[in-house]
Design a binder for these strands. Structure first.
Lengths: 356, 356
DNA sequence: TTGAAAGCGATACCAG
DNA sequence: CTGGTATCGCTTTCAA
């Protein structure tokens, strides 16, 4: 039995120690700590010297207390009825309720989906006086890209959620690697399907970068490794359950040898309803995205074979932490912020204990 | 565009407000807030009344500052060389380094693996004066169970890590549902294997509850749903790579129709070495546990087909949060603390960006 | 049983 | 350019 126990009782140095060591006042120490103007270079050097020697690290909690700091973050989420967005919005609301007690307030604002113009207006309306950071789910168009740049220029931190906006130079992206997610779906499809036949892909919007990336990843791996499975031209579900439900009968009629469906976007309830109404499909493999109330049931009953998920709770927590780290200009833990590409089968599905 | 913006600037009530409203002093308010003795019942009632009316919630950061609170937690981890334990230990070290700046110090202590006696001694040596909580990975024997009870009776919070100790009435369990993990492995095996044949299970120790549960879950699902696959009596790998490597040749010789291996414990490097030395096994499906440096490579190269993982970073963070919540007697977020049963295929494997 | 006042670590305002 | 001091929300002696 050995170990690096708990005996290291380290009285950490404070601003007072720095003041004492340098013979300066608290006020001056604070000035250099916060890079405020009006301090001679020699003095600055003296303080930094002491900081280095003492190994001083600011106590954020105390600083926030004194400063009465409030983190005001806004989540701009598409106003769609799909379960994933609803879940995400619910997480923002739920976590926001707790974060109030940690000097953080989360606001929510919804904009019409796939509407770059609305997103631009929402961003341009932001006031840095009342908003420290914003998390957006948007489509990557030049207008949006520029609006994000303007927002950051105003001094508001920006993270892209779910669908990346790399060209906008947002501070961070919080979401999964969608190309990898598409490849993962393809791998599951390839290994689960027996024999050969055709695969149907139900896509969402061609405007959304995440949907496109999934599709590309899926097609690439299927083509490379499962030549016996023919991937059909995808149908555009527009995340609309009713639309999806209505077009599926024709597809099934046209391709009797359909052996797999990859539902790469939203609108799963329509797919589920069709599959359950049209009797059991024992040899059909269905892989879908996002663990939601309806897809959960479909997975349980065997209508779906696998679900690829991104954890909405994690996404919201991560976005909040990253916005905080950005405005505080402090580093963050990469591994903690990496959103996993979750694979759920019936057996490893987390139990739903009430909650939103 | 609508939303519940950010305008709600809520000046939250403080102890001063309570004092003012009740006409009492800060000291008295503090006494009832912290359930300290020496306050008349009427006074207590008055304060509680005000708390309820104002909707007061204590500012933990300020309280900890004033109290100079330090959270001292100890992780007792088996002194095994296996990659999973090494990773876990590394996480404790890494997170501990950052947590110092958040009034939290994480200690580490190692004990001989599968040695109930050593664990009991380590627990009994704990002093509540210098330790607020402890996270243990241990085997569930009556002696350990009682030692955990004594530890809690001393006023030290206890969480079980990775392998549960339900009979000990530990405060929390941080880890996965291992029965479900076993079932998940079985499902992957059943869906990935083509045709029929025998399945080999490499087990760890019969003392470890987590290993047993995985085995039970695996067997149950295989028997119920894949009768065409015969699961052999498992071999005891004792988490020892060398031992595993040495016994495998006989197994392969004895069962030429081996079509799957479920490596349910540690010791993967031995399995990998054997598989790679004995030439390619195109039709052999291998499912193993824990994403580690060696299993990562095996997954990438195709030697392993799937890996079931529990995130060590998450486990350590969760254990720390739960210990904190326990000693502070405050609630926690169930969904955040649930450790997922991760499934990794080659395609959704997280990129390794340096780090431990 | 209750209150006054100092202090935790850091910030900010007002003088000098 | 630099220092003194009140303050943030809460805890903790020390007195009364």
């Amino acid at each position: 039995m050995k170990g690096s126990g708990l005996r290291t009782v380290v009285r950490k140095p404070t601003v007072n120690d720095i003041a004492r060591v340098t013979g300066l006042s608290l006020a001056t120490v604070d000035r250099v700590l916060n890079a405020r103007p009006g301090v001679r270079n020699v003095t600055i050097a003296k303080v930094n010297q002491a900081i280095a020697e003492l190994g001083y690290v600011r106590d954020t909690a105390a600083a926030n207390l004194a400063r009465k700091r409030l983190y005001r973050f806004l989540f701009i989420i598409p106003e769609t009825a799909n379960e994933f967005m609803v879940a995400l919005d619910g997480e923002v609301a739920a976590q926001g309720a707790k974060l109030v007690h940690q000097r953080t307030i989360l606001g929510r604002e919804s904009v019409p989906p796939f509407d770059p113009r609305a997103m631009v207006d929402a961003l341009d309306a932001l006031d840095p006086e009342s908003t420290d950071g914003v998390a957006v789910i948007g489509v990557e168009t030049p207008a949006v890209r520029d609006a994000v740049k303007r927002t950051r220029a105003k001094g508001i931190a920006v993270v892209a959620l779910v669908s990346d906006l790399p060209s906008s130079e947002r501070d961070h992206f919080v979401g999964i690697d969608n190309i990898a997610a598409g490849r993962t779906a393809a791998r599951l499809m390839g290994r689960f399907v027996r024999g050969q036949g055709r695969i149907l892909v139900i896509a969402g919007s061609r405007l959304a970068r995440d949907h496109l990336e999934r599709r590309n990843g899926f097609d690439a791996l299927m083509a490379a490794e499962y030549p016996n499975l023919e991937v059909l031209a995808s149908i555009e579900g527009r995340d609309d359950p009713e639309l999806i439900r209505k077009v599926l009968p024709e597809v099934f009629a046209a391709y009797p040898d359909l052996c797999g469906i990859y539902s790469s976007a939203a609108g799963n309830p329509g797919l589920i309803r069709f599959l359950e109404d049209s009797g059991p499909h024992p040899d059909l493999v269905v892989v879908a995205h996002e663990l939601t109330p309806s897809s959960r049931i479909a997975l349980q009953s065997g209508t779906f074979d696998a679900i690829i998920n991104q954890d909405t709770g994690h996404i919201v927590r991560s976005a909040t932490r990253l916005l905080k780290a950005t405005v505080d200009r402090v580093p963050f833990d990469r591994t903690q912020e990496r959103i996993r590409i979750d694979i759920y089968l019936r057996e490893n599905q987390p139990h739903h204990e009430g909650g939103a």
